[in-house]
Amino acid sequence: MSLDSLLERADIWRGDRLPATAGIPTGFAALDEKLPGGGWPVGALTEILLPFPGIGELQLIMPALARLSRKKRWTAWIAPPYIPYAPALAACGVDLSRTLIVRPRATTDGFWAIEQALRSGTCAAVLAWPVGGDRQMWRRLQLAAEAGQSWGVLFRREQDMEPAPVALRLQLEPLPGGIEVHILKRRGGWAAGPVVLNL
């Protein structure tokens, strides 16, 4: 057993970290180190801010989705901007038979669907591309994520900024050969300096 896999265990507590419920390991050790719980927060929302889609935001979450797939957990994709491409997802280790694609027509239907998916307890991860939204809506989604113990990921364009009250907010910037992840907000800690990930 390597040290890293030992430290991933939920029952190992490290003194230099704030206690937090175990997160879903991101698959990037440098990022896990900076996240409370050592990974993506469960039962809470994660907001990922992008200048535009396509800079590596999906590759950032693929290791976590593959990990959930190995446990036969469900992932819902709600109002994705393009078609999630099955051959590439399968190559990343995503179990397509545990993948739900929801394509609502209206914006209000989209928020309703996100809330249902988060709250149901079925989906370990809910990936959503919301348009608009207000404080009250974000609050509802946050409560739904808590109720369903789901990892809710909201992908948003930087210019849409009415900041959502979330447990974790990341901002991504493209780099040649990777991305730079700025942690703007995290539970039980200050904002932290950028992490460079090679994708």
Partner: peptide, 17 residues
């Protein structure tokens, strides 16, 4: 809940238009 018999391909993009 269903799955098909096709091939995965790591060289493909995650988004398709």
């Amino acid at each position: 809940g269903e799955d098909g018999p096709g091939m995965s391909d790591a060289a493909r993009p995650l988004w398709l238009l």
